[in-house]
Design a protein around this nucleic acid. Sequence first.
DNA 1: TGTACATCAGTGAACGCGCGTTCACTGATGTAC
DNA 2: TGTACATCAGTGAACGCGCGTTCACTGATGTAC
Lengths: 194, 194
Amino acid sequence: MRYPAAETAAKHDRILKEATRLFRENGFDRVSIPQVMQSVGLTHGSFYNHFASKAGLINDCVSHGAAKSLSGMARAESSMRGKAAYIDKYLSVAHRDNPGSGCLMSALGSEIHRDPEAQSAMTRFIAGFIDRLSSQFPWSTKRHARRDAIRTTASLVGGLILARAVDDEALSLEILREVAAGVKGRMSRDEKVC
Amino acid sequence: MRYPAAETAAKHDRILKEATRLFRENGFDRVSIPQVMQSVGLTHGSFYNHFASKAGLINDCVSHGAAKSLSGMARAESSMRGKAAYIDKYLSVAHRDNPGSGCLMSALGSEIHRDPEAQSAMTRFIAGFIDRLSSQFPWSTKRHARRDAIRTTASLVGGLILARAVDDEALSLEILREVAAGVKGRMSRDEKVC
DNA sequence: TGTACATCAGTGAACGCGCGTTCACTGATGTAC
DNA sequence: TGTACATCAGTGAACGCGCGTTCACTGATGTAC
C-alpha cells in the first residue's frame, strides 16, 4: 500500500544508516539485502523501491558516510585540544572495537578497490580527509602541512587496521599507543623540541 | 584413482599457492573452492582430499604466506641499501598493483578480524614483522627500535591500503611517495639531520 | 467538500545462480605375501 | 619376482542453502474533478 512521503523518506534514510553500519562491521560481501531490510524492520522486496541495486546502495552508503564523517571532523578540530583528542579517539579501544560506527577507511580500506562502484566515493572521502587534516591541524610548518597530513592519515588507518587485525590484546594496545604518540609528534607543539 | 605421493604433495602445494594468491587479490569471500581448484587444474571435489574445509585452507594460506614473507624480509634487509630498497619496494606501484603476490597485511588487513580462523596466524605474522623490523632496521636509537618499527609497520600498511583504495592516480602516487619519505626519515641516517 | 481513481511502497513467493560440501565411483599406486 | 588386494586422489553429479533480483498483488495515500 502507499505510504506518506515523509515516512518513505525516513525509511530510505534508515536503510542507508543500517546498511552503512552493517557494511562497516561485516564488509560488503557478508551483508545481504534481506539482512539490511530485516534490521530496518521491512521485508527484502521493498528494498528495490528505494535503491536500484546492492551496488547502488554501497555507493550511496560510502558517499553518505563520507559526508557525515567529514562534517564531524570539522567540529572535532575546532580547538587544539580537539585535535589531539581526535587522534586519541581515532586510535582508541572504543573505535577499534566498534567499526560499525567508525571510520570508513579503516573498516573497508583493504577491500574497497575491488568494488569500483564505491571506489570513487571513497577517493573523494580520502582526499577530503587529507585536505581537512592539512588545513586544520597545527603542523610543524605550513609548507609541509599536506605532506604531514598524508603521513598522518596513513598512520591512523594502518594503526587502527593492525590493532583490529591482531588477536593479542597487549600487542593491539601497544600499536594504538605507539602510533598515536608518533602522530602527535608530527604536530607543531612537539616539533619545537627538535 | 591413486597417485604417487610426491605428485599429491605437489598438488597440495599448488592449491595452497594459488589460493594464497587468489585470496590476496580478491579477498576470502570472493574466492570459491571451485575457482581455486580450477586454477590449479583440478575439479572441486578433490579439494577435500587436501584440506578439511575452506576455513582450514584460509588458515593454512595465512600461515604459509606469513612464513614465506618473513623469510623474504630477512634476505632483503641484509644490507643498508636493502633496507631503504625494502621501503621503496613495499610502497611501489608494482606492489600496489599486484596484491596477489604482495603483503598479507595490506591485502587482507581490514577483513582479517572477521575470520577468526585466520586471525591468529595473521597475529603471528604482524608480531614477526614488527620484530624483524625492530631488530634489523637501523633505527635512530636501539631504545626506540620497537616503537619505530610499530609506527613504520602502520605507515607501510596504511600507505599501501590508501594508495590502492584511491581512484586517482596522482593522489595514489603522492601517498606512496610521501609515506615512503616519512618512513625513511625514521631511519638513523636521517635522524642525524635533526 | 466529496468522490473516483491513479500512484506506489510493502509483502512474500518465486526465479536462476553459485556457494561449500558430500558421495558413489574409478583405477593406478603401493603393499602384503 | 609375481600376484592379489587395499588404499586413496580425482571425477562430476547431487545436496541444501542463501544470495540478488523480480513480480503479481494489496491497499492507503495523494490527486483530479
